[in-house]
Design a protein around this nucleic acid. Sequence first.
DNA 1: TACGCGTGGCC
DNA 2: TGGCCAAGCGT
Length: 354
Amino acid sequence: MNMNKNSGQNLSSLLLDWYQENKRDLPWRRSKDPYSIWISEIMLQQTRVETVIPYYTRFLQDYPNVRALAEAGEEEILTSWKGLGYYSRARNLHRAAQMIQEKYQGIIPNAYEDLRLLPGIGDYTAGAVLSIAFNLSFPAVDGNVLRVVSRIAGWEEDIRDAMGREKIGHIVSGLIPPGRAGEFNQALMELGAELCIPKNPLCTDCPIRSCCSAMSTGRQSCIPVKKQAKSPVPLEYWVAVLRRDKSVLMQYRDQTALLGRMWGFPMLIKMLSAEPLNEFTQQIGLELREMRRLGETKHVFTHQVWRMEAIEFIWEETQNELPKGLAWIPFDKMDHIPIPRAFQKIIKLCDIGV
DNA sequence: TACGCGTGGCC
DNA sequence: TGGCCAAGCGT
């Protein structure tokens, strides 16, 4: 990048001034507590600010410090996390809290190497916690920063590869004003979130447009360069709905499955199985007699699209015990177990519990 | 390195 | 509508 020291200082102070005037009032910005900052950074991974806010507020009430989180049960934490997605984040948070409790007496470490050893903390999150919570001079290169800095620098290589990230991180390191790492990193991210957005960036309002290579060459729409994402694989499922009194039959999903170790409904992939009644009878271990179509719903993941056709089964009592992983869940307990959004859609579609 | 991993909003 | 995108990490 062609940027001398003066222009770098100019850029940094222009950006910091803009940030002071325009930063959003977000819950985690009202705290300097490293625990709160850490929780917010994990929740914000690949997740929009507006989505995170209610989860963040509730989570900090339920688990106000490292000890509370470390001592909680995983299922309870997942229940608090349900609907937010990327559930390994919640499990990693739990494990990391236990490690911090044991190894550091509940105090969040402020060394890069120590943070990086905690599950769920990668290069970005370590930099974010160190700079925002401890004001240490580390870069925090997220998607916003990749976009902002690649535009400033006119960087037209793929930003996803390690080379690109390293280059951007190096540029950011050189721009951090002494003693203001937290503000500066947040200012870069805020600019990326509010003005230097992916499509149709608001360059006329940008405080650092005079330093921007993409602006000067009119190539804002070409930068950053990204490989095209693969489109999700479509999958079609039957979903079994069985009711008994004020409860419904649910399935604790296998560890290795998508949405593993959370609760869903028995499912069969359509593919070649033409007889859901027979196949569900085997899977569920109850005598199924009739089926009634309840409706269809769709759920989109990053890499899969599920089309789910819900079928209600009329069934008969047998002596058989339910197969492992299946359980009758009372309607009033459904709020207290981790049920991901895909299956909440089934509950809503079928008016289960109403 | 490339892929698996959730969800919701936007156009 | 469907594809794109969002404060990434683990493997």
